[in-house]
């Protein structure tokens, strides 16, 4: 049995006496303790957020893993994430996302970090539709009151780790944020900013194909100006 510092959910709620603005900050819950989930968890923790992470394994196993790769991040069950967190982040392989309690995500902001990338994911019949971005298909699998926002997906996990810079830094990397709900996009933009990236709203989910693996910004380290220009150019080309 793993000695667990962090298994009691109540012991880990944000402390009253913690830093000034942490009380007003959303609690982050991440599904997936893989490459991308851990990278985002570490950034959020560094930025002062309370972060919970769940995998399909036991809380003890997740805790053991987090103690080494993201100490300070709290292991939780998949179910507990739904009550502990304000913002949910899905960072599991796309082929497994239907295992998550999607219906219970009502009322949450949900960030989609996943990609449909056939060379790696294989052909997934649900997603094999060039007309429909994967995030649109995911939004449809969620209850109406869950607000899906796509971001983080277009940077590699090493980039997430290496590229964060404080607000205003000249070499700050931009993260495109696609979503249908303006408030949700704004909330996620604040998170992205806190985590060290320049948030760049990039339209509704129907336009999120521009963030996908075959799109113009995928894997690229761009500042906000270049990314805006590329997304606009690409958009007008598509519209034309």
């Amino acid at each position: 049995m793993v000695p667990s510092r962090t298994l009691s959910p109540t012991a880990n709620l944000p402390q009253e006496n913690s830093t000034m603005n942490s009380a007003s900050r959303p609690v982050i819950g991440i599904f997936g303790a893989g490459k991308s989930g851990v990278a985002i968890a570490r950034l959020a923790l560094d930025a002062g957020y309370t972060v919970h992470v769940a995998t399909s394994g036991t809380v003890e196993d997740t805790d053991q893993l987090l103690r080494f790769v993201a100490p300070g991040v709290i292991a939780a069950t998949v179910r507990d994430l739904l009550t502990l967190a304000d913002i949910l982040i899905i960072a599991v392989p796309l082929r497994r996302f239907r295992e998550l309690p999607l219906h219970a995500m009502a009322g949450h902001i949900v960030i989609d970090v996943m990609n449909y990338w056939p060379p790696i994911d294989g052909t997934l019949p649900d997603f094999n539709n060039a007309e429909r971005p994967s995030s649109v298909i995911i939004q449809e699998a969620l209850p109406d009151t869950a607000q899906l926002v796509k971001t983080f997906n277009h940077l590699g996990y090493h980039q997430m780790e290496d590229l964060p810079r404080p607000t205003g830094a000249p070499d700050r990397t931009a993260l495109a944020i696609a979503g249908d709900d303006a408030d949700a996009v704004e909330t996620v933009a604040r998170l992205v900013d806190d985590l060290g990236f320049e948030p760049l709203p990039a339209g509704p989910l129907t336009a999120s194909d521009r963030l996908e693996p075959d799109g113009p910004v995928f894997g690229r380290q761009l500042d906000a100006m270049d990314m805006r220009r590329i997304l606009q150019t690409d958009h007008s080309e598509q519209a034309a």
Binding site: A33, G34, K35, V38, T55, G57, D61, Q64, L65, F68, V69, Y157
Partner: peptide, 9 residues
């Protein structure tokens, strides 16, 4: 093992 922690575990 690539970068996924559970694989290392």
């Amino acid at each position: 093992v690539g970068g996924t922690p559970s694989s290392a575990l």
